[in-house]
Amino acid sequence: MSETITIRVLRYDPDKDAEPRFDDFIVPYRDEWVVLDALAYIKEVLDPSLAYRGSCHMAVCGSCGMMINRQPKLACHSFIRDYRGQLVTVEPLDHFPIERDLIVDQDGFIEKLSSLYPYLVTEHDKPLSEGPNLQTPAQLAAFRPFTQCINCLLCYAACPQVAINEAFSGPAALAIAHRYNRDSRDSGEELRSEITDSHHGVWDCTFVGACSEVCPKNVDPAAAIQRTKISASFRWLKARLLPGGTP
């Protein structure tokens, strides 16, 4: 623990602060330390009032998304050794209301996700006695990448459309909707299209691609959205051109 690094943390305590400010902490660190370890050190030794989220320490629970040197990152997957000699600025995720310090309000995301029927929709309940559905590895591969989302919301912090348009469903929620749409066992695409095809669904996306770049799990929400745009266009055409379609 010989080397040290300076960590600048955004602080905001609604009980005391009118608006956010920054505090600097000098933290001795070890080579395998990530930013989350540094925050734990600050809380334990330097300032117990620091508030942040984090649990699994293995990039799978999605708690610890924050802006690290202005980039959306998982604090448990950002090694301090990679910032050697730099000032590390840690802020709460962009584009979310700040509750306190590094903790943001994520209710909006859960609401958007909930509105997209994010579960398997089937026409009939399959009785347990029939056993599991069959699904080939290829069918699984068709949607598997989109099952990898850990809801860390880095993609929301990266997306300029999210910034200017609060109602936009956003990358992760749309990626999860796409995950179910592409699942061979699902028949809920029509249902989801109510939201995905609407203005605040995929059409708010201007194809920036930032979501996919920052995603720590290679979910590629941009791909999910572009593909949904293609299906949405076909649905639109079908509804207008085919007899019996309701425009």
């Binding site: 194809f207 996919s212 770049e213 791909a223 572009q226």
Partner: peptide, 8 residues
């Protein structure tokens, strides 16, 4: 950015 946005 296209590779990000195309079906694999």
């Amino acid at each position: 950015v296209t590779p990000k946005a195309m079906p694999p």
